[in-house]
Amino acid sequence: MRGAAVILGALLGGCALPVAHQAQEPVAGLRLIGEQRIAHRRIFQGTLVGGLSSIDYDARRGIWITASDDRSELGPARFYTARLDYDADGFRAVSLEAVQTFRQADGSAYPAPREAVSRGGEMADIEAVRFDPDGDGIWYASEGSDALGTGPFVKHAGADGAYRSTLPLPAMFKATSGKTAGPRGNLSFEALAFAPDGRSLWVGMEAPLYQDGPLASPEHGAVSRFTQFDRNGKVLAQYAYPIDRVQGRPAPGRFGDNGVSEMLVVDRRHLLALERSGVQDATGRFAFFIRLYLVELDGATDIAALPTLEGARYTPLKKSLLMDVNRAGLDKVDNLEGMSWGPVLANGHRSLVLISDDNFSPDEVTQLLAFEVLPGG
């Protein structure tokens, strides 16, 4: 299902990466511009910076937004606005500007899991955030909690985090008690992206629904669902996305996974999908393997009416490897979970930024990577 990979030579003084190449592709490759990091356990306006699982850019104001996936355990569920200083010649700085709290419908902050049990309210595990293309605040997606029996959600908020509305979801995304159907805890809504016209949004599952089959392993891949909604929650389409097997092999008794960590819309026919694989060594430390795919919508089966994918007949999305981040020449590739288009560069090419979630761990870092997007012919 992958296109043939080719290696681009050095270009414009940067690091060229292996890319898929087919005629008329909307994206031919990526050139690494540079990297910046945010210091571990930095305190900003009274909050602990970390767990940055998403990023997005507002071209109107030239600002960025990034959300922490802290479940209100180290501070309230929150997001930061920032400025990134880069162009085609280099990535010079990242600076945080403000922090806001995500708010529930009653105006209160989201509770920590232990508080949600005692006083109620939804628990937030926010893995994706986007500016509203219409300029009307932000949208964000949260994973559910198996322990609390709560499912994932997508919400619309003001620029200050104040609640606006909740996107209605199909029954297949509701949490169930038997763990035979519905989303797996901490493996559901990981990716969120708006179509260029702002009329629809895509939500990507990190891993399969229970009824859609097992998780990825070092021996086999898995399948997740990408769903296109209109702004009122109507399902416009849904497709099966093939997830790679776990990259590498964890040490005996240790953990390894692979899933979708973010997505972007390229045009009416193509998406980008970021896959993140993490495997533990014998000491428990993680190594991360990050792969970016160009995804083609044409020819895939609309699976919205299929209650289960196991044993079902359908055509999944086609994908081709666009970039193996571990071959980018970086000293360290961390837990990259966020992805956003950035400003157009002086040569007219798009830019793209990735951000990593450090899990508040001293073994991991918060890194931001800026790329030039090389257009297809």
Rank of each mutant, 00 (worst) to 15 (best):
A5L: 04
A5P: 01
G13F: 15
H21I: 02
Q24S: 00
E25H: 04
P26M: 00
A28N: 08
R31V: 15
L32A: 10
I33A: 10
S53K: 11
S54K: 01
D56A: 11
G62F: 00
I63V: 07
S68W: 00
D70V: 02
R71I: 06
G75A: 07
T81E: 05
L84E: 07
A88D: 15
V94G: 09
V94C: 11
S95R: 13
S95T: 14
A98V: 02
R103G: 13
V117F: 02
S118R: 12
S118P: 03
A124G: 10
I126V: 10
V129I: 08
R130K: 08
G135Q: 06
G135V: 01
G137E: 05
G137H: 02
Y140I: 05
E143F: 10
E143I: 14
G144K: 05
A147V: 08
L148A: 15
G151R: 13
K155Y: 02
A157Y: 07
G158E: 06
K174N: 13
K174S: 11
K174L: 15
G178R: 04
G182F: 03
L192G: 12
D197W: 09
D197S: 01
V203S: 10
P208R: 09
P208D: 11
P208W: 12
P208E: 11
L209E: 12
Y210I: 13
Y210S: 09
P214G: 08
L215S: 13
S217T: 12
P218H: 12
E219M: 15
Q228P: 12
Q228G: 07
F229A: 09
N232W: 05
A240E: 01
Y241T: 13
R245P: 13
R245S: 08
V246W: 03
P250Q: 07
F255T: 09
G256W: 12
N258C: 11
G259Y: 14
G259I: 14
D267G: 02
E275C: 07
G278W: 02
G278S: 15
Q280T: 04
Q280Y: 05
L292I: 00
Y293N: 00
L294T: 01
V295T: 07
V295G: 11
E296M: 03
I303E: 11
L306M: 04
E310D: 13
R313M: 01
T315M: 14
P316C: 14
M323H: 02
N326G: 03
M339W: 10
G342T: 09
P343Y: 03
P343I: 10
L345I: 14
D357N: 08
D357P: 09
S361F: 14
D363K: 11
T366S: 14
L369Y: 04
